[in-house]
Design a protein around this nucleic acid. Sequence first.
DNA 1: TATGAATGAGAATTCATTCAT
DNA 2: GATGAATGAATTCTCATTCAT
Lengths: 192, 192, 192, 192
Amino acid sequence: MSKVEENKQQKENSLYAAAYELFTTKGIHNTAINDIVNKAGVAKGTFYLYFKDKYDILDKIILRKSNQTLSEAIQMTNAKKIQNFEEKLLYFIDYIIEYLKDNKLLLKLMYKNLSWGVFKKASKDFKELNEIHHMFSEGLKEYGKDEYDTEMVLFMIIELVGSVCYSSIILEEPDSIDNMKPVLFETIKKMI
Amino acid sequence: MSKVEENKQQKENSLYAAAYELFTTKGIHNTAINDIVNKAGVAKGTFYLYFKDKYDILDKIILRKSNQTLSEAIQMTNAKKIQNFEEKLLYFIDYIIEYLKDNKLLLKLMYKNLSWGVFKKASKDFKELNEIHHMFSEGLKEYGKDEYDTEMVLFMIIELVGSVCYSSIILEEPDSIDNMKPVLFETIKKMI
Amino acid sequence: MSKVEENKQQKENSLYAAAYELFTTKGIHNTAINDIVNKAGVAKGTFYLYFKDKYDILDKIILRKSNQTLSEAIQMTNAKKIQNFEEKLLYFIDYIIEYLKDNKLLLKLMYKNLSWGVFKKASKDFKELNEIHHMFSEGLKEYGKDEYDTEMVLFMIIELVGSVCYSSIILEEPDSIDNMKPVLFETIKKMI
Amino acid sequence: MSKVEENKQQKENSLYAAAYELFTTKGIHNTAINDIVNKAGVAKGTFYLYFKDKYDILDKIILRKSNQTLSEAIQMTNAKKIQNFEEKLLYFIDYIIEYLKDNKLLLKLMYKNLSWGVFKKASKDFKELNEIHHMFSEGLKEYGKDEYDTEMVLFMIIELVGSVCYSSIILEEPDSIDNMKPVLFETIKKMI
DNA sequence: TATGAATGAGAATTCATTCAT
DNA sequence: GATGAATGAATTCTCATTCAT
């Protein structure tokens, strides 16, 4: 990578890092482009060289973070070499839940964006996610479902996990995530 | 009601109607207080006599609309005099889904607000909702669950229905709501 | 006029005066809304209460000034009670030329906007201008021209006077306006 | 011409073409250097190797186009070998009018620049224009005018034609150029 | 010569909130 | 209670120009 290219990458990353930090601590609404560039240590115009506006960088951050988190989760899951599919799926979900527990602000930012939409969009862009999707689809099919039902169930699991995480981790409603987990996992077992 | 009282009520209602219309068509972010008062045909200052700010009126709208919708749904459900609990619950959910199908904009507005939070908050304020809550709780208990599990399952059903509705009605992902319904209902049956 | 109404009028006039002063001295391009409101002694937001943007106030200034100037010219002309039409027309034109000679900046601002377009637009809005138009049309018809030719000749006189004024007063090209006048008047005489 | 020279020439021409296209379609005000270099397919810095700023390239474009148009007009006129001066002058003017009718955007761009100023400036730079000027001056003198009057009349004809073209071709005010032509030509005949 | 990333001053515009009437 | 003109801080966004490569 040339020096120029390196420098560009560095600036873009500074902007990502600054925006993420500010969005999660001050909130999206309370973060001005000004704040982002100041924190990133670049000129205001530079922001517009890389992003259209505040919502452009937000979308890209969510995609990056989702991808990153899911990739990490699948790597950790695969490393465990769990044979039983149900166990494997729950381990994967648990990993993500624990991660979000430690990153409440990320969860807040992504809100219910850790959903089918992002999952599908991200799948196209990142081949690793494609593999996750494929793996769980294959696993579910073994339970005697056809392709369509498999997709639907996978979708509903994702939606349910996302909703429950948000509600219980952020709002502690109707209970803490640790108390919710057994009920959630029980429900997932019933769903597959 | 005195004429003055009537007039006040009328102004407040104008503001509600105008804000709802604008929030659903232009989006919350793109609606200014100015737009609301213009549409409502009242002076800017008047807005502040009734609401603290944009988010105050938004919260109140969501509460009003949710309450209204849920009340209507329970009334229609009760009118059917369905004996079987499962059937009754699904009828209730189906009624709401059909309603949201016809009111996409409302769904978008309430997105992620037709959740436990609103449900509980609303329960306190409106005795009718309290009754709904009570009714389904009682019904679920008959399935051999204790009080805690009952609450959790009810919560998860609400979350799941909300997420699925949003995704399938608004984004048509992963499929249309009509195609999703059988899968969703099957899942709910398993959950209770 | 109520106190509020008076105050509004005053603010609007301040903005007009400030913008005119700045446009003529610094140029349109070099005048910022900021400059205008500072000079006018009103808040920035107030500007947008009365005008859409810089070009909106510019258009309105040109219309006001044109109207004002032409009204004054026709009043002075009528006061002279000149019987001969040609003489009267030339007096009117001379009055305007002299005025523009003393208000080079206005001329620059209006550039070639003292033309048919403005004349017609203004005619509709200000009945006084309508009268000017009517008066000269009637006068010209006496020279044996039909209505159409009358309009065309009037139009061409206005265009010619405007162009010559701009070129000779502002650029002193091809000669000073005082030297141009005899040639211009001679040409006009030939035209009618 | 060396390959380097050729390349430079090509870049400069690209910039001219891009700027002309953008100025005429989007307007001068709404065209940024950025737009020009993007369209031209050269780097931003390259622009500054050839032009001082936006107005520098604008002036040069107008000069090039005017020169080009007038040269073409005079060539076509001379080719006709018209003996009568009046007829020759009107043919020349007519040629330009027809050209501008087909190039409304050019006319808009040159608005008020196809005037004495440009004419004189251009005369110095391009010997062909000098000849045009000389030819018409000589022709006019035959009508018994002295040198000064000749210049003035020529000037006024140019101004009048320019104004009328702009108004009638662009604004169709007070009538279409085709309807204006007889009146305009009649007036010019009277002027010389 | 040519490039194009970076700059940052500065321009435009918005809008919640106040307060005199 | 109701009004709506006025405010001005805050924010977004533009763009000519520079300069290291």
